[in-house]
Design a protein around this nucleic acid. Structure first.
Lengths: 111, 111
DNA sequence: GTAACTGTACGACGATCCACGTACATTCCC
DNA sequence: GGGAATGTACGTGGATCGTCGTACAGTTAC
């Protein structure tokens, strides 16, 4: 696996982060990764094709929300917590706290 | 002017708010309205056609970010601060604090 | 009443988003 | 080496976004 391109900390833009998190699947990924640790691409979401997932990984990676690290034949995903907290202090915490079960009710809703 | 439709406080969804603010023009509007007070539609942004503005007002209104109140021949816009703070405590403050001049540098940038 | 002003409604257009299937590159394991 | 596993790359098709011009509706002022 090749190392994909990531923005540096300074290149992370607020609008890109907000846009990235304005999609239920990607918000769901944030929730999972916020627990900490690294996950292979295929271990977080299911019910979606591989190529669709690749699309969402790219949005999350290029906005600076996640990091993708090659390990064997998998790419390990993790949240760029330190970078996000340094750039936008409190933002991730507030978003996670604001995303109530009422919002998360239908992950695969009609949209 | 007719009163347009607004979501109730409970109908405001985090993803919709994040998506709404994931556009530089609308983020700009948030900054202006966060100062407080009410503004006519045409007094916040310029360099964009009226119909384009109407589109962005709808996005902001339907996501629950702003309120539009009819007054004479104008619609007065204001931030739904109380509703947003009640629903997502701290979110607006953090977003405003995170939106540094570096991000806001080019309001009418190449997009 | 009539003209000017403010903003919406509607339709159009190109660009982007989102989901998918297929093909391919890389790695692991036999 | 050959096959299986993991994910990306590419192209496609439909939906939505962002912008605009034009037309229209409500209000104000003469």
């Amino acid at each position: 696996m090749s190392e994909p391109h990531h923005p540096t900390r300074d290149q992370i833009r607020l609008e890109a982060v907000l846009t990235a998190l304005g999609h239920p699947l990607r918000m769901n990924v944030l929730q999972v990764l916020a627990e900490g640790g690294e996950y292979p691409c295929g271990a977080i979401v299911d019910g979606v094709s591989k190529s669709t997932l690749t699309h969402h990984w790219r949005v999350l990676r290029e906005s600076g929300v996640i990091n993708q690290r090659a390990s064997g034949r998998t790419l390990l995903l993790s949240l760029r917590r330190e970078d996000l907290d340094a750039r936008f202090p409190g933002l991730i915490d507030v978003i996670l706290a604001s995303y109530t079960p009422a919002d998360a009710a239908e992950p695969a809703e009609t949209r």
